[in-house]
Amino acid sequence: MKKAVLDMSQFDQNKLNELDAFIEQYEGENKKESLIPVLYQAQKIFGYLPHNLQRHIALKLALPSAHVNGVVTFYSYFSEKPVGKNTLSVCMGTACFVKGADKLLDKALGITQSKRNEITEDGQFTIKDVRCIGACGLAPVVTVNDKVYGKVSEKEIDDIIAKHQEETHD
């Protein structure tokens, strides 16, 4: 366990440099406060926040690793596990829930045979539930990556998944 945390060899050096350069811009009081933006950036670059990366960030920002890990695990935006090529999020905000979003979520999980927040076997999808994305007018709402689908019916879930599966296959 500990070895894994200390080992940084698996990381692409270019990506690490990119992250370090981002961290450079913060100093003084801003440095301590920059944790959340830095984690954002790290997740953007690496896709997720594995433990050794969190520790790397902790050292760079002179924060205890436990504090970094405490922040990462507090916010639902951050993921410690790798995510699929596509992130399909079903809005479970109230407006969407009232319009049957829970069924959409079950359906999506069923089709992809996966669990919430866990990557599918083929690595294509991570299915998540999210809180309101502010498009309640279109409830129930499903997003795949940045694309928003409104007034989604259970049937359409099949199409949506199929569509993105294809896109990433070619």
Binding site: K2, R55, S65, A66, H67, F74
Partner: peptide
């Protein structure tokens, strides 16, 4: 030192080491 921190939130919150490492590894 900052060895311990609450991890997660809500009912799942737990005061733990980073990444649930063994205390002896921190």
């Amino acid at each position: 030192i900052g060895v311990l921190s609450p991890l997660k939130r809500g009912f799942d919150v737990v005061v733990a080491t980073a990444f649930h490492l063994d205390l002896g590894d921190t």
